[in-house]
C-alpha cells in the first residue's frame, strides 16, 4: 500500500519536473512568485522578498518590545534576557575587538546585520518556508551594503585620498605601484563577493542535503529507506540551526573586521 503510494508520488514528480532527478530540489530552493508555496504574489514581490519583510516586521516588533522593557527595569527578564545575550555578545566579542576605538558608531549597523540574517536563516527552517539568504541576490545586496559601509567608514575617517593611499602598503618601489593598485582594488572587491557567496552557499547547502535525503525515498521508489533519510535529514536540520547562527555570526564579524581595517589603516 505505502509502496504503491510512494511510487505514484515519484512518478508524479518525475512527470512534473522532467526526468532529470535533481531539478525538483533546485526548484524548491529557488525564489518563486508564490508566497509560502500557497499564495500568488503580485509582480513586484517574490517569496524571498516576503520572507525578508516578515523578518523585518518580527525584528521591529520583538526588539522594540525588548527595548521598552528596559524602561520598566534595569534587570532584564525572559525574552529581553535572550536578546541581551546576543547584543552583548556582538558588542563585546565581535565589534569591540575588531573595530576597537570608536566602535559605537558601527554597532547599530552590525547588530542589524546580525539579527536580520539570523532571523531570515531561522525563517528558512520553518517547514515549507524559504531561506531568503539562500538567494544570491539577497546575499549580494547585504554584501553590497557591507561594502559601501566599509568604504564610507574608511573615507570618513581617513579622508578620500588618505583612505585609498592607505590601502597600498608603505615603502614599495614605484614600478610595482600599477600592479599593487590592481591587486588592492581586486582585494577590495573580493571581500563583499566572498561574503555574498559564503552566506548563499552555506544556507543553500543544508537545504539541498535535506531535500536530497528525502528525495532518496522517491528516487529509489521504496519506503524502506525512509528511516535513514529521515534520521539523516533530522541531523542535517539540527546542523542547519547551528549553521544559521554561525553564518549570521561570520557575516557580522567579517563586516566588522573589514570596517575595522578601513578605519584603522595603520595596522
Amino acid at each position: 500500500m505505502a509502496l504503491a503510494e510512494v511510487k505514484e508520488v515519484a512518478e508524479h514528480v518525475a512527470e512534473k519536473h522532467g526526468e532529470s532527478g535533481g531539478s525538483w530540489i533546485i526548484h524548491h530552493i529557488l525564489d518563486s512568485d508564490t508566497f509560502f508555496g500557497l499564495f500568488p504574489l503580485p509582480n513586484y514581490l517574490t517569496n524571498h522578498v516576503m520572507f525578508m519583510l516578515i523578518a523585518s516586521i518580527l525584528l521591529i516588533f520583538a526588539l522594540s518590545r525588548a527595548a521598552s522593557s528596559y524602561k520598566k527595569s534595569f534587570v532584564p527578564t525572559g525574552f529581553t534576557n535572550l536578546i541581551e545575550i546576543f547584543i552583548v555578545f556582538i558588542r563585546d566579542e565581535v565589534v569591540k575587538p575588531t573595530i576597537g576605538k570608536g566602535y559605537e558608531k558601527f554597532l547599530p549597523f552590525l547588530l542589524t546585520v546580525f539579527f536580520f540574517i539570523l532571523t531570515i536563516n531561522f525563517l528558512g527552517l520553518i517547514p515549507n518556508g524559504s531561506t531568503a539568504t539562500g538567494n544570491i541576490a539577497v546575499t549580494s545586496g547585504l554584501a553590497l551594503i557591507s561594502f559601501f559601509m566599509t568604504q564610507a567608514a574608511g573615507i570618513k575617517k581617513n579622508g578620500f585620498l588618505g583612505y585609498f593611499k592607505g590601502l597600498i602598503p608603505h615603502g614599495i618601489p614605484a614600478f610595482v605601484l600599477p600592479v599593487m593598485i590592481v591587486v588592492e582594488v581586486l582585494g577590495l572587491l573580493t571581500k563583499p563577493f566572498a561574503l555574498a557567496i559564503r552566506l548563499f552557499a552555506n544556507m543553500t547547502a543544508g537545504h539541498v542535503i535535506i531535500l536530497s535525503l528525502i528525495g532518496l525515498i522517491f528516487i529509489l521508489k521504496t519506503v524502506l529507506v525512509s528511516p535513514v533519510s529521515v534520521g539523516f535529514a533530522l541531523f542535517i536540520y539540527f546542523l542547519e540551526i547551528l549553521v544559521a547562527f554561525i553564518q549570521a555570526y561570520i557575516f557580522t564579524i567579517l563586516s566588522s573586521l573589514f570596517i575595522g581595517m578601513a578605519v584603522h589603516q595603520e595596522h
Binding site: 529557488l30 509582480n43 513586484y44 517574490t46 544570491i136 541576490a137
Partner: peptide, 22 residues
C-alpha cells in the same frame, strides 16, 4: 519587475530582489 522572472537557476541574480534587499 522583480516578481516577473523568479530565479530559473541558483546563480541568477534578480536585480529586483537585490534592490528590495537593500
Amino acid at each position: 519587475e522583480s516578481g516577473t522572472g523568479p530565479q530559473s537557476w541558483l546563480l541568477d541574480v534578480n536585480p529586483g530582489v537585490l534592490l528590495w534587499t537593500i
